[in-house]
């Protein structure tokens, strides 16, 4: 018992250090590179010509929004996977992300909204899809396969909607919309991100606080009843918290492909003690987002938005996952 706890905490610390290191690189690398001393000085509020603007106004917002988005996707994806006992059941595979994205694109391009209003649309889209999937997929006993299939169907529909909206957009908005749709930190601003920060903070704490219930839900259908947990209520509350978190993240940075399904799964692969690890999954999400952003911004001659990189990493991972859990499903 104690070694298990120790392992969980040490992984948490290692992941946290990982985020710090990546965060430093995020602030230091770019058009012009700055060393650690300069970055620290700037962060302490010292005015350094050139560096201050680049670090404080451009890179720091990206870093913070990236961390928040990563945590949101990681925690939410992990919660989905734990509740449904299936690594494939994550918000992005199930169409929650693309539906939130479609509504957000609609709000941005057609209605010309921005800020909190866009988040509201995204949340509405995400919650709507989640409600549809879970209300239909209940039937006699909750069927995960049904839920996954329905999610994929809805995703195809949302994709059609997104392409349609893109066609209505004029060429001027198109480039911006395409960047956003690929999932991008480029337009990250700290003003207006307060709501995002508070949402992620509250919901992450809430889910962490519910670790015990989450653990019980992951055990099976009958056991929780005997343990005195109201399965349906807990499941819905926890899933909705996750959906809201992913939707808000999507509204701010666009649909970040594959982050939510990779983060939780990788974390559980590393710790392997059969726990829930919400916080670890959140930090893992942040690590995936930050390192993809670093790759996208620095590894190529052209800068690519972070979502393109996570998509390219995530697809083979999903296929690998499919192949590795073969024969478990019909």
């Amino acid at each position: 018992m104690r070694t298990r706890k120790k392992k969980e905490i040490s992984v948490l610390i290692i992941l946290f250090i990982g985020v710090l290191i990546l965060g430093f690189f995020m602030l230091s690398l770019g058009e012009s590179n700055y060393d650690l001393a300069t970055v620290v000085k700037v962060l302490m509020g010292q005015e350094i010509k050139g560096a201050s603007f680049a670090v404080m106004s451009l890179r720091l917002p990206k870093l913070i929004i990236g961390i928040l988005a990563g945590i949101a996707c990681g925690v939410a994806g992990n919660t989905f996977q734990v509740i449904m006992k299936n690594p494939l059941a994550s918000p992005d595979v199930m169409g929650v992300t693309s539906s939130a994205g479609a509504m957000a694109v609609f709000a941005i391009l057609i209605l010309g909204l921005e800020g909190v209003a866009v988040s509201a649309f995204a949340i509405a889209g995400g919650v709507l899809v989640a409600v549809i999937i879970f209300s239909f997929a209940r039937g006699n006993g909750f069927s995960i396969n049904k839920a996954i299939l329905m999610g994929i169907g809805i995703q195809a529909m949302m994709q059609a909607l997104i392409t349609f909206i893109l066609q209505q957009a004029n060429a001027y908005d198109l480039s911006k919309a395409m960047h956003w749709l690929s999932g991008s930190l480029n337009s990250a601003k700290l003003s207006g991100a307060g709501g995002f920060f508070i949402t992620v903070l509250i919901l992450t704490c809430f889910i962490q606080y519910r670790t015990k219930e989450l653990k019980v839900l992951s055990l099976g259908e009958e056991l929780p009843v005997t343990l005195g947990v109201n399965i349906d209520r807990e499941r819905i509350v926890l899933l909705m918290a996750s959906v809201i978190m992913v939707s808000v993240a999507t509204a701010y940075v666009g649909p970040l492909a594959s982050v939510s399904f990779m983060a939780g799964h990788i974390t559980r692969r590393i710790i392997k003690t059969g726990g829930v690890y919400s916080l670890q999954a959140g930090l893992m999400g942040a690590i995936i987002v930050l390192s993809s952003e670093l790759i996208g911004q620095n590894a190529f001659a052209i800068r690519f938005p972070v979502g393109v990189i996570t998509g390219i990493i995530g697809a083979p991972y999903l296929i690998y996952l499919l192949l590795s859990i073969r024969n478990k499903r019909g």
């Binding site: 494939l88 994929i152 390219i312 192949l323």
Partner: peptide, 28 residues
């Protein structure tokens, strides 16, 4: 993934994964 049998979930997920990869390459 289906161990020789093409199951509905396997097919749909393989399709979804391939779509994600392809659209990422398209954006790239």
């Amino acid at each position: 993934a289906g161990g020789g049998k093409v199951g509905p979930v396997g097919l749909a997920l393989a399709g979804a994964a391939t779509s994600t990869a392809c659209s990422s390459v398209v954006s790239l």
